[in-house]
Design a binder for these strands. Sequence first.
DNA 1: AGGTTGACCTGGACGC
DNA 2: TGCGTCCAGGTCAACC
Length: 272
Amino acid sequence: MPELPEVETIARGLDRRIRGDVIESVWIGSRKQPFKSRPREIASVLEGARIGSVQRVGKHMVADLQEPGGEHRGQWILHLGMTGRVVVADPTAEIPKHTHLIARLESGREVRFVDPRMFGKIAVYRDTDRFAAAGKEPLLVTTKEFTDLFRGRRTPIKSALLNQKLLSGVGNIYADESLFRSGIRPRRQAASLTRTELQRLHAALVEVLQEAILSGGSSVSDYVDSEGNEGLFQLEHRVYGREGEPCRICKRIIKRVVIAGRSSHYCCKCQK
DNA sequence: AGGTTGACCTGGACGC
DNA sequence: TGCGTCCAGGTCAACC
């Protein structure tokens, strides 16, 4: 589900709503799949912690945790996988199936992590350990750094965009949408792109990510933000999920092909 | 080393 | 109604 704009939307919502609140207690479900840290460790780091800022790093959500006195305690890391949701709920609200963690807050509300497919991950860091993304931040990378990422790469540009060790945060939707906006076919070998094409791709990627954040992300099937609201950016998709429909620019039929196991959508007239 | 594939899971949509 | 098949916003380990 969630790529950079969706995670950004959730992180901003959480930051606004639960920053400063204190985690009183934690319930952890029995399924162990989503837990990257041991459940006991998660509970021990979370319980009694004050929530500082909540920020997005790549596709991860990172909450800073403080001691009651204000000193740094650690970090709470959430990755939503394909179907993960983080919602702030009233304790009386029905607990949905596939709820894996509930953090009860001093304010009386609950933060719930729900993930049917269990591709998501929950982890905690203690003390001086800090979470760091493997790749460059797409909204901060310079054009020079961006173009250098793809030098000598024989993989399709679509796959390179999805490689989180190069860029952190780009997923299937925004890879396809940025390639369309820059007029580049997804199967093009990354190393074959000209400097001009890479500059166009960088600009298109930043543009589409920023527009999507303003729209609250894309809700394709079940994404909702921390308040349960759907995003609107799916209405602006030009190729993703539009196989068989006419290109918004030239009216040719949008094609879907599989590249490295991922559906890839493009227009054969507008993209070369 | 770098690139590609399949596995990990559940559930919704669709065809028969 | 039900059953089988395919598909899904992501990442790994295991292969070439």
